[in-house]
Amino acid sequence: MIGIRQRLRGTMLALGVLALSACSATYQNHGYIPPEEDLQQLVVGVDTRATVDDVIGPPSTSGVLEQGDYYYVRSRIREYGMYRPEVVERQVLAISFDSTDTIANIERFGLEDGVVVPLSRRVTESSVVDNNFLRQLLSNIGNIDPGDIFN
């Protein structure tokens, strides 16, 4: 009888430890910010867009214009159990250029500077809404023009 109680107690203890470890936070890192040592090599008013590309590399995000500014973004997101993921750190490095492609300014922004700016991608919505394959197939039956078949 004592052996069964000890096994049951050991099993319950193991399940308790497993349940507690499942509730630990996990972190995801996204993006890239160049190290400060590399940024020290860039001189505002002297270096150009080509120099930035050589020293720290082109960014994954740039301004909307053809020759827009450079934006390097790094985010750290914490996921904890069933709760919504939370951005705990976000840094944005903005390098702006003047009309001659010379560096005009280098700025660094973080969460402490203001509100979290949600990063999102614009995706063109599909014209197929709430239609499965069978519904799409059957809806085209009445759209067949016999003249197109014989020509």
Rank of each mutant, 00 (worst) to 15 (best):
R74S: 07
S127R: 11
A94Y: 14
V116C: 01
T100S: 11
Y70D: 01
R7E: 03
L15F: 04
N29S: 13
I33C: 02
G63Y: 00
G57H: 02
Q67L: 07
G31L: 01
I144T: 01
I4E: 12
V64L: 08
N140V: 04
G3L: 13
V115D: 12
V17I: 15
T48H: 02
V17W: 05
S24R: 09
V87I: 14
S60N: 11
V73P: 00
R84W: 04
V17C: 10
L18G: 07
Q67A: 09
L18H: 03
N143C: 00
L20V: 12
L137M: 09
D101H: 01
T11Q: 15
E89G: 02
G110N: 07
V43Y: 05
L138E: 14
R76H: 04
Y83Q: 06
T26C: 05
S75T: 03
M12K: 02
T100I: 08
T11L: 15
E125V: 09
G114H: 05
G147Q: 12
D69R: 01
P59W: 03
S21W: 08
P85W: 00
E125Q: 10
N132K: 02
T11P: 03
V64N: 09
D47Y: 10
G81K: 03
A19S: 14
S126Y: 04
M1W: 13
F150R: 10
V129Q: 06
P118W: 02
S96M: 01
I95Y: 02
G110Y: 09
V128F: 05
L65Q: 03
G142M: 01
C23Y: 11
D47L: 09
P58R: 13
T26H: 08
V52M: 05
N29G: 09
L65W: 02
D145I: 03
I2R: 10
L93K: 05
A94R: 14
R78N: 08
S62T: 15
E125G: 12
E112F: 10
Q136W: 08
A94M: 12
I4V: 13
A22Q: 13
S21T: 09
S126G: 11
E112Y: 10
E79K: 14
R121F: 14
S75H: 04
N29M: 06
Q67W: 03
I149N: 08
A19E: 11
C23W: 12
S96P: 00
I4S: 08
R74E: 04
V92G: 00
N131A: 15
I141E: 09
L39A: 04
V87Y: 06
Q6G: 04
V128P: 04
M82Q: 06
D98M: 11
S75N: 05
Y72H: 00
A19T: 14
P35C: 14
Q67C: 03
I141V: 09
D101M: 01
Y70K: 01
S60I: 03
I33G: 06
E86V: 12
N131T: 11
V55K: 00
V116N: 14
F150T: 08
N29Q: 12
T26I: 05
I106S: 00
V117L: 15
P146W: 04
T11F: 15
N105E: 11
V73L: 04
T102N: 03
L93Q: 08
I56L: 11
V44T: 12
D98E: 07
I149L: 15
